[in-house]
């Protein structure tokens, strides 16, 4: 589908990405998986990489991501996508290989696989959808659930005692030498979505340049299991999740940090347009 502005009849301003199929998604209204899919697909198109992209889906709501991307896809056991992607990338080094994983998959059952993929500097790209909950199984506590957040398996709210604080995966993986590019973005408004797309593009470029492990964490919504309307769910990301999971660049290739002082983010061009986000990014970098 192409919608064109009438005064520039020959210039498309909106196109359906080639790298997405036309299959309607099963995602709930207001869920940001669709946005994340679209951004990734747009970047694959921009890189003209559709014919050499191999995705690895995980277990959770995004288990059917393989139906929505119009590229070769594998579907890994719960948490094992980075290992499966390792096997693929090692024997198909020319391919653009990415995993798409939720927080239960990546940060809980797959904690070892994601950590060691980063340790090996595995030249793959990971898209980490953090919505602070297990979506597919009906809203149970995830390793990224906020303290005090009520879920189907933490009905009194997540407690620091016995359940601990949410795991900040990007900060953790940024400590690993093999990680080349680790950033956190959000999908709660248009500015953030545009910043997220730039990060997705940069992550793929890092892989294309053979620089090592790249990951974009995307703060995402789950209106159904949060019990919020879609717009309130986006506010929840902004007001509750961003303070717990600061946006920013936790690890970028050295050449980029060595650039202009104070503008060493992967998408520094966007920083000026979003002073608050830039400040948060700066804080995250210091952390």
């Amino acid at each position: 589908m192409t919608v064109v502005a009438p005064e520039h009849a020959m210039t498309p301003v909106y196109e359906f990405p080639d790298s997405l199929t036309s299959v309607p998604t099963h995602y709930c209204p207001g869920c940001t998986h669709g946005i994340a899919h679209r951004l990734i697909a747009e970047v694959i198109d921009e890189l003209a990489a559709k014919e050499r992209t191999i995705g690895v889906a995980s277990v959770g709501c995004s288990v059917f991501a393989c139906r929505y991307f119009d590229v070769d896809f594998g579907q890994a056991p719960h948490g094992r996508a980075p290992a499966m992607a390792t096997g693929i990338k090692r024997v198909a080094p020319e391919a653009l290989v990415f995993t798409y994983q939720g927080d239960g998959d990546l940060a809980s059952i797959g904690a070892a696989e994601i950590l060691h993929a980063a340790v090996r500097g595995e030249n793959i790209t990971v898209f980490f959808i953090n919505n602070a909950i297990y979506g597919m199984t009906g809203g149970q506590m995830a390793p990224t659930t906020l303290v005090g957040q009520k879920t189907a398996s933490s009905p009194a709210g997540r407690s620091l005692v016995g359940q601990g604080a949410p795991l900040r995966v990007s900060e953790l993986l940024a400590q690993v030498d093999g990680a080349a590019f680790v950033v956190r973005r959000s999908l709660h408004d248009v500015v953030q979505i545009r910043r997220a797309k730039k990060a997705i593009r940069r992550a793929f470029e890092v892989q294309e340049q053979g620089l090592g492990f790249s990951m974009v964490e995307l703060l995402s919504s789950c209106p159904t299991n949060w019990g919020l309307k879609p717009d309130a769910a986006l506010d929840f990301i902004r007001d509750e999740m961003v303070p717990a999971f600061p946006l920013g660049d936790f690890k970028v290739p050295e050449a980029e940090t060595a650039g202009a002082a104070g503008a060493g983010t992967a998408d520094s061009s966007a920083a000026g347009a979003d002073a608050a986000g830039s400040a948060v990014a700066g804080r995250a970098r210091r952390g």
Binding site: V56, G74, R80, A83, M84, G87, I88, K89, A92, A112
Partner: peptide, 13 residues
């Protein structure tokens, strides 16, 4: 666990 899933990936490729 990781080894067999790496095998899975390479076999899938």
């Amino acid at each position: 666990v990781a080894a067999i899933n790496m095998v899975y990936g390479a076999a899938a490729a």
